[in-house]
Write a protein that binds this DNA or RNA. Sequence first.
DNA 1: AAATCTATATTGGTATCCAATCTTGCGCTG
DNA 2: CAGCGCAAGATTGGATACCAATATAGATTT
Lengths: 238, 238
Amino acid sequence: MGNLSEQISETLKTAILEQRLIPGTKLGERELAEIFGVSRIVVRQALIRLGTDGLVTIERNRGAFVAKPSLQEALEIYDTLTLLEQGVAMQLSERLDAAGWDKLKAHVALQAEAIDRGDHQAADELGQGFHTMFIALAGNRLLQDIHAQVVQRTFLLRSLYTSRFDYCNLLNEHTKIINLLERGRVKQAMELIDAHHRHVVRGYVLDTSEYPTVNLKDALRPELSGDNESQYLAATGT
Amino acid sequence: MGNLSEQISETLKTAILEQRLIPGTKLGERELAEIFGVSRIVVRQALIRLGTDGLVTIERNRGAFVAKPSLQEALEIYDTLTLLEQGVAMQLSERLDAAGWDKLKAHVALQAEAIDRGDHQAADELGQGFHTMFIALAGNRLLQDIHAQVVQRTFLLRSLYTSRFDYCNLLNEHTKIINLLERGRVKQAMELIDAHHRHVVRGYVLDTSEYPTVNLKDALRPELSGDNESQYLAATGT
DNA sequence: AAATCTATATTGGTATCCAATCTTGCGCTG
DNA sequence: CAGCGCAAGATTGGATACCAATATAGATTT
């Protein structure tokens, strides 16, 4: 049985990324401890982990809350994402072999299929996956981890701003980027990457409506039936 | 009295960055708890914080150790640093105003003075500071934080590989980068940034000698006001 | 000398307690 | 009736003591 506090931080992270826990939600130690059937200290350690990841903000003597990036921070997130992917684009245009390009093309093809099937969710995930794969091809683990962290924060924005994507358009841009890079037209590709992210940002419309305070136990139910069921049952028994 | 575990993680971080705690050093919970005069739990929380920062590696049931990056990881660190600074270089060449360029030039001048004085340490710190200021001028807090984290890891490398810098040369390169960017010669500047970091890496010579296991209390003595642990609280918090 | 077994130390975690601080709600005052 | 202040309750931050699991090291055996 591995690191309990890490397991719990992962569980919470998944819940946040899947938007079952929305920004601003209070993450009370005692409440989470009861829900997971562990001691408060393990929960606190998990929250500290999420805090350094930027998914949770911890206020002294007030507790932990799901992070709620400002519009300024949202722009910074996409600006950083652009910078990272532009940099990788430069590297790939010089170094990537045919197999690499094929891998990217195959991924785009998969997403195209999903769109044809009308599978909205799969198309979304594959769209995200494209960027991940793109970075991974650079072969720099540290860079990959950093990129993943920044991507995680974009999920916080999805709850704050209602997204209205045009998947076909985004997919088209992915294809264009590949083609431009493969032919060595780096500058155009980088501009397209920039435009691509701006496109995503424009897809976000500020949602002014107040979010209801979600019930933690309900939000975390999917996780608990999976790997923490004994603790969960014990918690409900009280 | 602020977050005790954060205070301690900062203290440890400083000690690591100043190479009083060298890579591979075991950071025993009980020992640190006694040294700082706190409970084991706060120490563990501090170690978790450093773990997510990459300055400490935690092995299950074995404990925490000052991180010891492999040569591969060392290359990745500098590769990432290059990518970040190249990206910022592109942004600055388009957006930075005269005041910004002046600020950079003034900083380089300061470093030149330090070199003239023969103040090795100040020159070193100012050299690092140049890169930090460079990133800060992009005005992206997230990017700045990410850069800072990567820079921190380079300090681990300094203990592992003996450095043999040529400060004048590095300083010269800083000046050149500024001039190139100000005149809009982005591509040349980016190549110079790449070369600059490779220059630093070449300055590192693998040091095969074994490091002695340092005594934790001795390594942390500068942070503590006296022999007794209880004085840590008096010295730091009010 | 090599391998195995045992003893001890360390980590991961729980339960309980306490101080400090934040929140809430009540009552008092103008 | 509105606004203020203060006390009660809740929550966090931390300490202490204790236990289980695991790793290290030392002792024993072959």
